[in-house]
Simulated assay, not measured.
Amino acid sequence: MTPRPIDLNRVVALLFSIGSALFVLGSVPAYLNAVGQAADSVTYFVGSIFFTSASLAQLVQVQSPAMTEVDAESQYRRAPVRFRAWLPHDRNWLAAVAQFPGTIFFNISTFAALLHNVTAEQQDRRVWRPDFYGSTLFLVASLFAILALGRLFTFRPRSFPWWIAWLNMVGSILFMASAIASFVLHSSDDLISDPVSVGGTLLGALCFLLGAILMLPAWKRAVRAAEKPLKT
């Protein structure tokens, strides 16, 4: 497989954008009322597939130097990618390798949510647990992504990578809040907090969507920065 670096980055951004948009859509109460619970659950499941595809593509991207260490010319040259790597000292790789299994847990939870007539205990085991595990891994991935920029608490409002990393962190925190609020109380078969569950997913997905959109201008700026040493 020999993609062009700029094309692979576009694919990652597009897949994350679609996945996030579907989670946003599925969280809108008006959409649920219009299409029904079954179609809404399918929307989440399809969105999770886009998340997983994007995460896998991003993992391949970050562990392939030919896909990231590019300038204005080399971003259009086809180059081989690495499907396997062990880069424990690379925080960007650690972020990607933590995020990928997190998306798989979301595949499991959203698929299990398609099932009907399950008890509260089954709901918590099949849906809530994978959702909680996925949210935890997203938090870990977001932390590594921020640490890859340098210090944990820095303020760089002119940096696209800084905005992307923190948007993903806020999105991960909101997803975790949603996961916790989605626990089904066995005594009443009610969620801990339905508004927090829905709102956390909606706002978290919006953060992920904004972060995905910023990947395109971030790429352009990084390519321009790579050209500067050549001109001096």
Rank of each mutant, 00 (worst) to 15 (best):
T2A: 13
R4I: 01
R4G: 01
D7L: 14
D7P: 06
V11H: 12
L14S: 10
S17R: 06
S17T: 14
I18E: 01
F23P: 01
V24P: 08
G26P: 06
S27T: 01
V28N: 03
Y31A: 10
L32G: 15
N33I: 05
N33Q: 14
V35Q: 13
V35C: 14
G36F: 11
A38Y: 13
A38H: 08
A38N: 13
A39V: 06
A39M: 13
S41V: 08
S48K: 09
T52Q: 07
L56G: 12
Q58R: 06
Q61G: 07
V62G: 00
T68M: 09
A72S: 15
Y76G: 04
R77K: 09
R78D: 05
A79N: 13
R82M: 10
F83N: 09
W86L: 12
P88A: 06
P88N: 12
R91G: 00
L94Y: 05
A95C: 10
G102W: 00
I104Q: 09
F105P: 05
T110C: 10
T110K: 11
A112K: 06
A113Y: 08
L114R: 01
L115G: 05
N117F: 11
T119H: 14
E121G: 10
Q122I: 11
Q122F: 07
D124L: 00
V127R: 04
V127E: 01
V127M: 08
W128D: 00
P130D: 01
L139E: 07
L139D: 05
L139M: 13
S142L: 01
L143G: 09
F144V: 05
F144T: 03
A148C: 04
L149K: 01
L149M: 10
L152S: 04
P157M: 13
I164E: 10
A165E: 02
V170W: 14
G171M: 04
F175A: 02
A177G: 14
A179I: 08
A179E: 02
A179Q: 07
V184K: 15
V184E: 15
H186N: 14
D189K: 11
I192K: 02
V196R: 00
S197H: 09
V198M: 05
G200K: 07
T201D: 12
L203N: 03
A205L: 00
A205T: 10
F208A: 04
L210C: 10
L210D: 03
G211Y: 06
I213W: 09
I213S: 00
I213P: 02
L214S: 04
L214Y: 10
M215Q: 15
W219Q: 06
K220W: 07
R221E: 15
V223I: 10
V223M: 09
A225F: 04
A226N: 10
E227P: 05
P229I: 05
L230S: 14
K231D: 15
